[in-house]
């Protein structure tokens, strides 16, 4: 291990320790214990615009059914409002929509219990950010999301937005895919993706790559991410590096690359109708431009190679 790496390891440890030393006992704003419920009509006296629209919102429609069992009104999410109504002080009432008080998301999770489980279990955004209100607005009419889902994700994940705009990308920016096709923003049992096996996630759409094949390409089994970056790359086909550099990071070159070519036009003596233009570097151009010109079945194949001694059949 290099000295540079060791220094970075040390720096990482220092940062972790420093973070552990940072603590605060600040308490998120909540209604006082003696606050009482005052009803929607009281809320509407000041928040008339929100009150007027609320019946047509998703929360308003789905849960404001009129039955006492499912009756959800303003104070179901904002808590008892008497103190706030009396004083007009915003700190005396809960506001799950305030991203500056992420603890207020507990109000949301008290009903959405399945998400409560997931945010504990998974790699949830909840624990890292401003809570549910970072992405959701409970008062929206058509959807509780603040923006179209992928735009919403990329507002924070700007590096992914940059990758999604690279020449080769999954069609996220075109609106043909959503981030949620692969990721569950509420958290899941796996670290990043919506299925237990990240390769399995890829194969659910790209089933032709899974095999099993007679002649395997081992990285396909190991991890699709060895060769591909699913969000976007400069190289074609979402490859993390351009060919042939990517291939040559594991494989050796053909010995033909060392050959010199003649200068000028040529024809094949045995097949005079075939020919072309040759140069001294012609073999390098042929063998070191794009390996998949010949090795097309790069994910695996059941077809034998032409030569008996070849170990596999990626050549076809």
């Amino acid at each position: 291990m290099t000295g540079y790496c060791r220094r970075l390891q040390f720096l990482g440890c220092v940062l972790v320790v420093c973070t552990l030393l940072v603590a605060s006992t600040a308490v998120a704003g909540t209604p006082p214990d003696d606050a009482a419920y005052v009803g929607n009509e009281t809320c509407a006296m000041c928040h008339d615009e929100i009150s007027a629209e609320y019946p047509s919102t998703m929360h308003g429609q789905v849960y404001w059914s009129g039955s006492s069992d499912n009756h959800v009104d303003c104070e179901s999410c904002h808590g008892p409002g008497s103190a706030h109504a009396d004083e007009g002080d915003a700190s005396l009432i809960a506001n799950p929509g305030n991203t500056d008080e992420p603890g207020n998301s507990e109000w949301c999770l008290s009903c959405h219990t399945e998400l409560h489980e997931d945010q504990v279990l998974g790699d949830a955004h909840y624990a890292l950010s401003g809570g549910c209100a970072d992405c959701h607005n409970a008062h929206e009419t058509e959807s509780t999301l603040r923006q179209a889902s992928s735009d919403l994700c990329m507002d924070c994940h700007t590096d992914i937005r940059a990758q999604a705009n690279m020449p080769s990308h999954h069609p996220i920016t075109e609106g043909l895919m959503q981030c949620t096709d692969c990721h569950n923003p509420h958290g899941q049992e796996t670290m990043h993706t919506a299925t237990a096996d990240e390769n399995e996630l890829c194969f659910s759409c790209h089933a032709s790559k899974e095999g099993p094949f007679i002649f395997e390409h081992e990285p396909v089994i190991e991890d699709c991410g060895i060769c591909h970056n699913p969000h976007g790359t400069v190289a074609d086909n979402l490859l993390v590096q351009t060919e042939p550099a990517l291939c040559l990071s594991c494989h050796q070159m053909h010995f033909h690359t060392q050959l010199a070519g003649i200068e000028g036009e040529f024809t094949m003596p045995v097949y005079p109708e075939r020919g072309g233009e040759s140069s001294i570097d012609g073999f390098k151009e042929a063998m070191l431009t794009k390996c998949t010109q010949c090795h097309m079945a790069i994910h695996g194949s059941d077809e034998p190679a032409q030569s008996i001694t070849a170990p596999g059949a990626l050549s076809r």
Binding site: L259, S278, A286
Partner: peptide, 28 residues
């Protein structure tokens, strides 16, 4: 994309000057 295969054109030279033709060839 369409691969034009135009990099696949060469005949071996037995010397480093690119004059004496050898046996290995690639055409497209």
């Amino acid at each position: 994309a369409t691969d034009l295969l135009d990099n696949m054109s060469v005949r071996e030279s037995k010397d480093r000057e690119g004059i004496a033709p050898g046996g290995k060839m690639i055409t497209n």
